[in-house]
């Protein structure tokens, strides 16, 4: 872990959905992690593992049937306890910048990129006057490397990569200390993934911001992240350095290992079975039914210790005598 001060500090974050008929869906359970300034943490896992719900919780965008517990500190503010007014006036855009999934759909189709930027600049910085707004919008576009001659285009005339930059420019306007990117590469062509994540990475390397990327695209995570948190069935099962995770000695949790081995440039072998239902999680380790290392010990819930929540983790290469 870095010695820099944490921008976002999540402690014991849990989210439950109350469903009709009294069912409770355990979408996120007891998440602990920090993101430091100048650092990128990638939250990875299969769809439905709870990672998007976690992001929504941080932004206060959960639906009415959700219940949360724990805390998510951003400076002095607990994002989970903040009311809608605080979230709308001081958090969204100002403290947390969101880079949404499918940015082309996130932009209003009838307005140009420039008009989006002008509105956001006016709302977040209080800039007034036509010329000043235009200048501020151009500056904001330049920060995200969005070409100035495309500013007067409508979203449908942008390529996927440019739409992504437009969305990034909008997220950067408020100069928020935390950027949250939700599946920034889904739907992008493979050739566009690398430049897009490099672009995101650039904003972290200034050292002031931190970036939380939520993705199931392991190749993108590998390129952008300093650390990775692997989520399975609502829990973080491994939290470790990205270089050791994707390189040697590799991940230590059997699930993370299986996920990496499923990549087409590795073994291309699927994990057996499917993730459990979040509404009826097994007691103990949720991955045990799919795990080839499972023993009787796995009926007890493994604690996240030393970066991995497993009773039988793979040992780091150096320790294997």
């Amino acid at each position: 872990m870095t010695d820099r001060e944490a921008v976002l500090s999540v402690r014991g974050l849990s989210v439950r959905f109350l469903m009709p008929g009294g069912r409770r869906i355990a979408a996120v359970t007891d998440a602990h992690f920090d993101v430091a300034a100048g650092e990128c943490l990638a939250l990875i896992g299969e769809s439905g593992c709870g990672k998007s719900v976690l992001a929504s919780a941080l932004l206060g965008l959960l639906p009415a049937n959700a219940r949360t517990a724990g805390e998510a500190r951003l400076g002095d503010l607990d994002l989970l306890a903040a009311g809608e007014r605080t979230l709308a006036r001081t958090v969204r855009g100002r403290l947390v910048g969101l880079i949404p999934q499918s940015p082309a759909a996130h932009l209003t189709p009838v307005r140009t990129v420039c008009s989006h930027l002008r509105e956001t600049v006016a709302a977040l910085t209080g800039t007034r006057g036509r010329a000043a707004l235009r200048a501020a919008a151009e500056a904001a576009a330049a920060r995200a490397a969005f070409p100035a001659d495309h500013l007067d285009r409508h979203p449908h005339r942008l390529s996927g990569g440019l739409a992504q930059r437009a969305a990034t420019a909008l997220a950067l306007v408020g100069d928020a200390p935390l950027l949250l990117a939700d599946e920034p590469t889904t739907g992008l062509d493979r050739d566009l993934v690398d430049p897009t994540v490099d672009e995101l990475r650039r904003h972290v390397d200034t050292g002031r911001r931190s970036l939380l990327v939520i993705t199931h695209d392991l190749a993108a995570a590998r390129r952008i992240a300093d650390r990775v948190a692997v989520m399975y069935a609502g829990r973080i099962v491994e939290l470790t350095d990205a270089r050791t995770f994707f390189g040697t000695p590799g991940p230590r949790h059997p699930y993370s290992r299986g996920l990496l081995e499923a990549l087409p440039d590795r073994a291309f072998a699927p994990l057996p079975g499917m993730p459990p239902e979040l509404g009826s999680l097994p007691r103990g380790c949720a991955f045990a039914p799919r795990c080839d290392r499972a023993t009787d010990a796995c009926t007890a819930l493994p604690r996240l210790a030393d970066g991995v929540a497993c009773h039988h983790p793979h040992l780091p290469e150096g320790l294997r005598a």
Partner: peptide, 22 residues
């Protein structure tokens, strides 16, 4: 990092619903 034993007990749940529904 280890979990605090206290967190394994049922935590206090916060609601985020709005009153518009009623």
């Amino acid at each position: 990092m280890t979990c605090d034993p206290a967190t394994t007990a049922e935590p206090a749940w916060r609601s985020h619903g709005t009153e518009r529904r009623s």
